[in-house]
Amino acid sequence: MKKIFLLPLLLFLTGCNITVLDPKSDTASEQAFLIEFSFWIMMFVVVTVFILFTYFVIKYRYTETRKHDLPQDVKGNIKLEITWITIPVLLLIVLAVPTLAITYDQSPQWTEESDQSGVVIDVVGKQFNWTFTHANGTEEMDKLLIPEGESIVLNLKSADVIHSFWVPQLGGKVDVIPGKELTYEINNPKKGTYQGKCAEYCGLGHTDMTFEVKVVSKQAYEQYLQK
């Protein structure tokens, strides 16, 4: 059991080739930072508990020699209890600060209230495919081309049930909800081809509701729009 636990540690140390922790945009980088940062704090908690646990279980286990031991009747200890209230509170405060900052920055918003500056693209999710419409009306299904280095503003709509737009390496999910239009921003994507998928269970063909995202140079994007 303990050995398995070392597995992710090793993976983290050997330069993270886990998809989500290999971000290709500023948006995803901030999220990956938060994940790794919290991971280390959590490691601290887990290790503390494991050490105490192992120590107590071994030290106070029943043995033949302790057959007639009668443990002392301890009721509690206010000082100790205050310690393990205070330390977690402090840890959580440390965690809360970057969480607040990044959440404020990244939370999806209603389209009416959002700032539409950047490369605006309309996204429509429908059982079971995605349609992407660019500013000049260019439309393509299940394939999204975006320019690198820009701020990409996605306006997401659903034609039927709830879907969720997700490109792990470019950013987190945004739900695509019938009757509401949400806006999500992906900042500064880097060149490459990425997998996108629908992350909210949407019925029969949910598994196959995938798409491809290509981040290309600005010129290539212009050309694509001209086509």
Partner: peptide, 15 residues
């Protein structure tokens, strides 16, 4: 607790 960090949950959610 990791899931509760809202911005990180954008990645974790539904996985």
């Amino acid at each position: 607790v990791m899931l509760s960090l809202s911005a990180a949950d954008f990645q974790f959610h539904d996985t």
